[in-house]
Design a protein around this nucleic acid. Sequence first.
RNA 1: UCCGCGGUAGCUCAAUGGUGGAGCGUCCGGCUGUUAACCGGAAGGUUGUAGGUUCGAGCCCUACCCGCGGAGCCA
Length: 432
Amino acid sequence: MEKTYIQDLHRHAGEEVQLQGWVSNIRSSGKVKFIVLRDGTGLVQGVMVKGQVPDSLIEKFETLTQESSLSIKGKVRKDDRAPGGFELDLTDIPHIYNIAHEYPITHKEHGIEFLADRRHLWLRSSRQHAIMRVRHRIIKTIRDFFDNRGFTLIDSPILTPAACEGTSTLFETDYFDLGKAYLSQSGQLYGEASAMAFGKIYCFGPTFRAEKSKTRRHLTEFWMVEPEVAFNDLEDDMDLAEEFLECIVQTVLQNCGPELKVLERDTTKLQNVKKPFPRITYDEAAKILHDKGLPFEWGSDLGGTDETVVSEQFDRPVMVHRYPSEVKAFYMKRDPQNPKLALAVDVLAPEGYGEIIGGSQREDDLDALLTRIKEQHLPESAFEWYLDLRRFGSVPHAGFGLGVERTVSWICGLEHVRETIPFPRMIYRLTP
RNA sequence: UCCGCGGUAGCUCAAUGGUGGAGCGUCCGGCUGUUAACCGGAAGGUUGUAGGUUCGAGCCCUACCCGCGGAGCCA
């Protein structure tokens, strides 16, 4: 018999179909038996009445447990009582693949630690299913966005010889006779090299930070997409980031309505995410914080609370640009109008979700870049190839990085980024 | 690394320093439309670990372990 999936049942009303999946729940009301089947595309309830089906079928039903795997056969019937609009009048259980042992995740509430230890099973729940579907849509939209605009995907290496930005703590590993290698914390420097070859590029892959960050916004392994465009300045960079974020949010809204409903996400605040986004300088952000009475010192980076307070002033993502150069990376270009400022931009998501994009116009002048490298005591030899980009046809260029997990967390309205990635890696969690 | 909160049945949580309970899950029974079904019954405990105070400690004290949240750092 042809394979049918639950999401397609509306096309088979009145027909007999066979489904394969797992028992999400079983219920019984005396002689009426119910199986709620999950097949990855949805849930559907199968019904049978003792006396109207063979006793052998009832006997099979009695052996089933939560998460047992099986195939069921039945006639599709439209039913207003069903959450999905359709039910199955069961005629057979052709095959039971496995009678599941006692399943640890029940339909009651569980603590986060208990669920995290069983992440491999937790992914089966409808909430996690919804989050992963939104994540998938976001990633697909990211790729489509750049692919449709003439960007070339250039993947950066994960094993790197030195720190990209020189600040973060990196994961270290032995690399044969060449000494130490480090897991990449950013593909950006390689992105710059690629932009000088292809004009418009993006790299998209996992990145690693060995910082002992313990917050709802941090993972040790996370995904980042980093576009880089030759001949773009900071304004162009912000234009791109703005259009990019609008596209992601609006595409998710158009395609993931059922998922956002499962997550009980209030989408009215997401509807607002349309360009233009407010653009304020770091100085203006500092003024907002002072006016709110926060103890903020000019020259320091925005903390988590600072970001929340600033973003609360706006109804959509806000772009904060021109940060003090001391708090930003060596490769960011200084503002010609004020050398104390870097041509950097952070995009802060609404509702307290904080920085989801960090970007800048890059330093394209060889001497200026050499000065920065010396000032920050970075190993010049490791950056020779990067300096070459300024020796051979240097041009203005800019780019940014978007953190996928923070974006998923924001769009889904989650408490913690650990739910946004199938198998999260955090300082105290390497399993499952 | 620092600060704060927590650890009791398989799970989620109660329990004034005085006999450790409930709901869910499991098992048994009942129910002809259940939606985290419901009703009745049963099993299920070295209260994170090690000390201490006390006639008596899940509760108070000390140390340690583990987790959660935050700071710093960042996406």
